[in-house]
């Protein structure tokens, strides 16, 4: 590991990471073929850190989040191969009845569509209780639910409310409460603020930040909003067409991004006020290719301003550049001179 990482990371890197993804391939079966929305060589969430996963729409961020739970919203998707070690348990190898005990218990998930994450005809309290009791937390279950509601800034009254009786911001707080209720060490948050009003976004982000500190939580935060990354993340992974193209500390990525795609993302973000906008801004020509038309070699080659011969032919491996890891031929000694 890099010696320059802050002390906080130093103390935790000794421990086994809370989440480690290796050689993950997730596939979606469509008539006649199988698509691969996720092909991640390695992604690590160290204990007690917030790791951002950024990329344009369609880059495979949500699919990665679902892969962590080994649970997909569509039956067509599944994990093809690889390993996802979550708190010591491989979510790919372990049986489904074991995974059920881990979801919501060892890892909480927060969704963008807070309005769709709760059963509309069951009260909030009952749904949180259901989760606690399912995971065998029978003792003082109601008190636990009330305390976690309080922790996310909601009054005890919310316990007996139905989802439609709450505002978007309140519902997302409930979403966070549900992710926290079993005291998991890890939270996966998929665009937790994207669907909210700008002022509410800031409040929810503050809440996540303070809870993370309070509980020393690990968070895998999926977002297209680089402002959020800068504010809350320790590490960041940049994703493009299912693959990680660059990763490192937030500080370094913002200061001197090494991958042309990351550079494009950052330029786009600084050229407009990106906080609160729904679409990620990219100062790059063209648009992200679909899964049926993945380019050969470096997947970014048809949009990259620095494309070379080799880029079209061969996929680049990772190179260490000033403490960052970037998958780009520009950093290969042989090609960088061209």
């Amino acid at each position: 590991m890099n010696p320059n990482i802050q002390t906080k990371a130093d103390s935790t890197t000794q421990l086994e990471p809370i989440l480690e993804i290796r050689d993950l391939i997730t596939e979606i079966r469509v008539p006649g073929r199988s698509l691969r929305p996720v092909e991640i060589e390695r992604l690590v969430v160290p204990r007690g850190q917030v790791v951002g996963l950024v990329g344009e729409s369609g880059s495979g961020k949500s699919m990665t989040a679902y892969s962590v739970l080994n649970l997909f919203p569509t039956a067509a998707a599944s994990i093809h191969s690889g390993s996802i070690v979550l708190d010591g348990v491989d979510m790919v190898k372990v049986r489904e009845n074991e995974r059920v005990k881990i979801r919501g218990n060892k890892v909480g998930m927060v969704f963008q569509d807070y309005a769709l994450s709760f059963n509309p005809v069951i009260t909030i309290g009952k749904q949180l209780m259901e989760q606690l009791l399912t995971h065998g937390r029978h003792e003082n279950a109601k008190a636990k639910v009330l305390s976690v509601l309080d922790e996310v800034g909601l009054s005890a009254e919310v316990f007996s409310r139905y989802p439609h009786e709450l505002s978007g911001g309140m519902l997302q707080r409930v979403g966070i409460a549900s992710a926290l209720v079993c005291d998991p060490p890890l939270i996966v948050a998929d665009e937790p603020t994207t669907a909210l009003d700008v002022t509410v976004q800031a409040q929810i982000l503050e809440l996540l930040k303070s809870i993370q500190k309070e509980r020393n939580l690990s968070i895998l935060l999926i977002t297209h909003d680089l402002g959020i990354v800068a504010e809350i993340c320790d590490l960041v992974y940049v994703m493009y067409v299912g693959q990680i193209v660059e990763h490192g500390t937030v500080h370094k990525i913002f200061k001197s991004p090494s991958h042309p795609y990351t550079q494009g993302l950052l330029q786009g973000a600084s050229s407009v006020q990106s906080v609160g906008t729904h679409e990620i801004r990219v100062a790059i020509q063209g648009s992200i290719p679909g899964l049926t038309e993945i380019p050969s070699g470096c997947r970014f080659h048809d949009r990259c301003p620095h494309t070379m011969e080799i880029c079209r032919l061969q996929q680049p491996g990772f190179y260490e550049v000033d403490g960052l890891q970037a998958a780009c031929w520009l950093h290969d000694a042989e090609h960088s001179h061209g």
């Binding site: 739970l69 649970l71 919203p73 059920v100 005990k101 881990i102 979801r103 919501g104 218990n105 909480g108 998930m109 969704f111 569509d113 769709l116 994450s117 709760f118 059963n119 509309p120 749904q127 259901e130 989760q131 399912t134 995971h135 549900s178």
Partner: peptide, 11 residues
Amino acid sequence: DYVVAARTRGI
């Protein structure tokens, strides 16, 4: 969606 969400909670 809420059933998918419930499954992510381990129900």
